[in-house]
Design a protein around this nucleic acid. Structure first.
Lengths: 225, 225
DNA sequence: TTTAAAATATGATATTTGTCATGTTTTAAT
DNA sequence: ATTAAAACATGACAAATATCATATTTTAAA
């Protein structure tokens, strides 16, 4: 099995601050898991006994709201960690994680994270900084959700996907999502997302080819009202 | 000047995990600041060189949205810390802090927090757990904002204020807020908040005496649609 | 105490967004 | 290749919410 020491994904998260010995231990007891598009990685309410590190593919973190809608909180790509928070606060997870495409994850048992967290200052400070950054992001998202129009939120979702996951050689978003996925990110009805994306297309802000989307005018997309 | 060692507020946050020596140092270099109702403690975009600990009174963290609305992100009462995150991530603050009533804060210079953060495992793990908890809360709020009706959000704001700051001997909320404050918390127009509060009053969910509000039927308030 | 300003209240109306219905297109399984 | 299911699209309408206008009440300042 491949080793963490050589994993590129590792460079992208706090794991880079583990000592060689700690990393070796992680590497020795990690397992690799595969999930197909749409499969559930974990569900809200579960107790997690470890952390998942995305090696390849994209997952979404969602929560089912009281009225039965799925709200997507965050998308996670290569190198990002799932379940980190539940481990730190030792609580059940409040979110579900679902594969958005075929995904490969490394599963690292809890102890391998908690122990360094309590003994390796560099690591724990790194995790701390990441959490602080996440928190800032979450507050920003909260405000956007409260203050921006649905159209603006859909535009944001497109911009986010482009920025986070990039485009292919022809400019199409690497991450292909359904209209429903965009609706869940923007916190709106699927029909609304469809309508808005159609409008964006008519207005030349985006173009599509099948399910693929290309942002044609990023500036205007940022300025929708 | 009073000492941190004897401060009750301290018990409520991560400072309780500082060693005696660390706490002594904090105590020796802290300064006390007073702000009147409505005064700005700090504004978004400022670089903070320390952390504020609420000793008495309540502050709100808000952000001005693109369309000129103030969105309240969090209220902070006795023992809570302001600016913690900006210190950890070493970034300018993205939120403004404003006194909701006359408030007394202890200001602790950055170094007194950062140093223990990098050397005292117990303290840094405590902060880590608090951040994890805050992040969970922020994600919950995000989802509520996206999925709940304005009426539900106003109801929530009332419930939050009761839970967080309690009631006086007659059952009135200790923290007296304007309708606009409630609107900013719920992310809605002031008129909408006013209308909804009036409706709650008509329906017997709350009663008022001047600006004071009493929750009369918590159960029903939790169940508004 | 008087008076101006701020906060609260409420109606009328416009806008945004959601919901339901229905049809078309695309995708994936047989 | 055929077919069923899923995704996409769009119209019609309803519901939620914002906005604008204006009046009343409360608060704070002179």
């Amino acid at each position: 099995m491949s080793k963490c020491e050589h994993c590129i994904a590792r460079q992208l998260n706090s794991m880079k601050s583990l000592t060689k010995e700690e990393l070796k231990r992680v590497s020795d007891c990690k397992t690799t898991k595969f999930y197909k598009k749409g499969e559930i990685i974990f569900e809200e309410g579960e107790s997690l006994n470890g952390v998942f590190c995305v090696r390849h593919g994209v997952a979404k973190l969602t929560k089912l709201s009281a009225n039965g809608n799925d709200q997507t909180v965050k998308l996670l790509g290569k190198g990002e960690l799932l379940g980190q928070r539940s481990i730190i606060s030792d609580e059940r997870t409040n979110l579900s994680a679902i594969a958005l495409n075929d995904i490969e994850l490394c599963y690292v048992p809890k102890d391998q994270i908690v122990e360094p967290l309590q003994q390796n200052q560099v690591f724990s400070f790194d995790v701390l900084q990441n959490l602080a950054k996440d928190l800032r992001g979450a507050e920003g998202d909260l405000i956007d959700m409260a203050q921006k129009s649905v159209k603006q939120r859909v535009a944001q979702a497109l911009i986010y996907v482009e920025k986070e996951f990039g485009v292919d050689e022809k400019g199409y978003l690497n991450l292909v999502l359904s209209r429903e996925d965009y609706a869940n990110m923007a916190g709106t009805a699927t029909e609304s997302a469809i309508r808005i994306l159609s409008q964006f297309k008519k207005d030349g802000l985006i173009s599509t080819k099948g399910k693929q989307i290309k942002i044609e005018n990023l500036q205007k997309l940022k300025l929708v009202d």
